[in-house]
């Protein structure tokens, strides 16, 4: 049952979410925009295309992209980003963070493999961002784990806790923090603008600049998975925050999770319409907000336990 739910959602939700965000953004900017299904088409198109590989690159270029993809594929099945317990359930918060790091490590390496200055700068910035964002990420995960007394993601996000652990403040702060973390980690708007071209995009797009055809498709799928997973996790946090007034039926919760993910997508579209991109040196200031939220969550959680 769980496997079916997760497989289906993993195949649909991430791409729909990306399409939805693009569509919503277009609508908000008074454009027609591409279809919500456009990401599916893109992926298929890319799989059919010829791949160009730099003469300077070694085998690591493709292997890195592959590892990156595999990490996300593993995570999308094993992280409870929907209200169901996941298909493969052996991931705890640290393994989660370190799998993300693994994915990142290999994507940086494959970006650098071609010797391209673009990829290198993007890689450098990706490393910097990860260094800034990981404490916030771990804090926002540690906070609920303190509440629930477990480090396993599955147990943290299952809806069967006692009332004492249903502390709205902790969950909501953690959720907000995770959302901000997601914005940074996925290089979305205040940190980076994914829609601009080359010289202006700094992180994700510049890292995949040398990838084409199948390689690009794999990294785009990975990106979509990551987006869905992060939004899913923050939605789970927020849902736990209001768990006291929620029904306990799994399917309703699933529907609410998916609705939540898309509403975060809407929020993202709104943000990307309203905000301007931050100067690179100001990014740490922005990330500080998510760190603060995470700290709040942790302190609140410690307070609840004490």
């Amino acid at each position: 049952m769980n496997i079916a739910v997760y497989t289906l959602s993993a195949l649909l939700v991430p791409f729909l979410l990306i399409g939805f965000v693009q569509k919503a953004k277009a609508q908000l900017q008074n454009r027609v925009g591409a279809s919500v299904l456009q990401p599916f088409f893109n992926i298929f198109k890319l799989f059919g295309k010829n791949q160009i590989i730099s003469e300077d690159s070694s085998g690591l270029f493709r292997a890195g992209i592959l590892v990156n993809f595999c990490c996300f594929a593993y995570l999308i099945w094993s992280v409870p980003w929907l209200s169901f317990s996941p298909a493969i359930s052996s991931v705890d918060i640290f393994l989660f963070v370190y799998l993300l790091a693994t994915a990142r490590f290999f994507s940086i390496l494959s970006a650098l493999d071609t010797g391209s200055p673009f990829g290198a700068f993007a890689g450098s910035r990706e490393a910097t961002l990860s260094f800034l964002v990981e404490p916030a990420m771990i804090l926002s995960l540690v906070a609920p784990s303190i509440l629930t007394g477990s480090s396993s993601l599955e147990r943290i996000f299952s809806f069967t806790h006692q009332v004492s652990s249903q502390n709205p403040i902790v969950w909501i702060f953690a959720g907000i923090s995770l959302f901000l973390v997601a914005l940074t980690d996925l290089s979305r708007m205040p940190v980076d603008d994914p829609t601009t071209h080359l010289e202006l995009t700094m992180v994700h797009e510049a890292m995949t600049i040398e990838a084409s055809g199948r390689n690009l498709a794999l990294s785009e799928i990975g990106y979509a998975f990551k987006l869905a997973m992060f939004f899913g996790l923050s939605v789970q946090c927020l849902l736990h925050g209001i768990a006291f007034c929620l029904p306990s039926d799994q399917w309703i919760l699933l529907a609410m999770s998916i609705a939540g993910i898309f509403s975060l997508g809407l929020l993202l579209a709104l943000l990307e319409t309203v905000l301007v991109k931050l100067k690179w040196t100001k990014c740490p200031d922005f990330i500080a907000y998510s760190l603060t939220m995470g700290l709040f969550a942790c302190i609140a959680a410690l307070g609840v336990r004490a």
């Binding site: 493999d113 290198a120 910097t128 942790c298």
Partner: peptide, 28 residues
Amino acid sequence: VLLICVLIIAGALSLATMAKVVSVTFLG
């Protein structure tokens, strides 16, 4: 909690460092 953060930061730093080492030594 603070120590967990410290370890995570150190981990991220080591990732950046080793990404640099591997790429500058072996790649390109």
